[in-house]
Design a binder for these strands. Structure first.
Length: 283
DNA sequence: CACTTGACCTGTCCGC
DNA sequence: TGCGGACAGGTCAAGT
């Protein structure tokens, strides 16, 4: 769920909230998914927030970085100055802030606090030297980023050399960075490609449509602040809106937006809920 | 090597 | 109302 638009939305808010703050103290309630020496970040001043695919790197001025993958249910929630919330804090903040799923509390200067919640404990945090962030296996192995590096030619090459299903390719972070289940579903519908189509069999024309569809759905979601499907909220505690504007994701039983008389079908592809229109997405 | 499947977790929702 | 079970989806290790 937290895919490129969600993580990018978090990155942007974090940038406005915590850059310039110094980390005074770190409290760890659950540290099994933390690697590296968390003490190294004490006293560090936050200089910038970067994103690599679905991973964030909070870079400090003491040459250390806090690299975070929130996976499915991780939440980074801010409390402190500059926080202007248009809506109430989301009910998706399970257990409260802080609460029973708060694994780490970053206590910053100027009365600011950043909480890391993760009720399913899938997320991880790595403390590494800033110049080694790109050496983290997950980041090192990422494929090109849509909206920044990926283009039709590269996608075409990837597809031609992959004999599995196109949806699996899209969700493989080593092939394309940042796309997950929601946007893979929506992009394939927009391009009119069956999720189980074999990637190497798809025509160039269709791959071009797909490339454009990926950009389209990601950009639309970025404008909406991401999709709050499972546990995603922004550091302000607010939800995104894309979940109300998905093209097919989560819409099984509803009419296809292109074919009023055809209903969106739900199947499983690579163990994930997969939604498509049987009429405009043929194998 | 290339690709697929199931495990990791826990809250939520559905049906009986 | 209560309860068991299916389900949610991002990786990653294990399996084919």
């Amino acid at each position: 769920m937290p895919e490129l638009p969600e993580v990018e939305s978090i990155r942007k808010e974090l940038e406005s909230f915590i850059v310039g703050h110094t980390i005074n103290k770190v409290k760890v309630n659950y540290g099994e998914k933390i690697t590296g020496d968390i003490k190294k970040i004490n006293g560090g001043k936050i200089e910038r927030i970067r994103r690599f695919g679905k991973v964030l790197s909070i870079d400090l001025n003491n040459n250390y970085s806090i690299v975070i993958h929130i996976k499915l249910t991780g939440q980074l929630i801010y409390k402190g100055p500059n926080l202007k919330r248009r809506n109430n804090i989301s009910k998706k903040v399970v257990g409260g802030v802080p609460g029973k799923h708060t694994h780490v509390v970053f206590i910053l200067d100027k009365d600011a606090i950043l909480y890391f919640n993760d009720y399913r404990k899938f997320g991880w945090i790595k403390i590494v030297k800033t110049n080694r962030v790109k050496d983290i296996d997950f980041i090192k192995n990422l494929g090109p980023e849509p909206l920044d590096g990926l283009n039709f030619k590269k996608l075409s090459k990837l597809a031609a050399s992959y004999n599995g299903m196109i949806k699996t390719l899209l969700m493989d972070q080593t092939k394309v960075a940042g796309v997950g289940n929601i946007y893979a579903n929506d992009a394939l519908w927009l391009a009119g490609i069956h999720p189980e189509a074999i990637a190497s069999d798809i025509s160039k024309k269709k791959i071009k449509d797909l490339y454009e569809a990926i950009e389209n759905v990601l950009k639309r979601s970025l404008k909406q602040g991401g999709a709050s499907e499972l546990a995603y909220v922004r550091p302000s505690g607010e939800e995104g809106d894309y979940q109300d504007h998905t093209l097919v994701y989560g819409r099984d039983g509803e009419s296809c937006k292109r074919h009023k008389n055809t209903k969106i079908k739900k199947i499983k592809v690579a163990g994930r809920g997969t939604y498509f229109c049987p009429k405009c997405q043929k194998k």
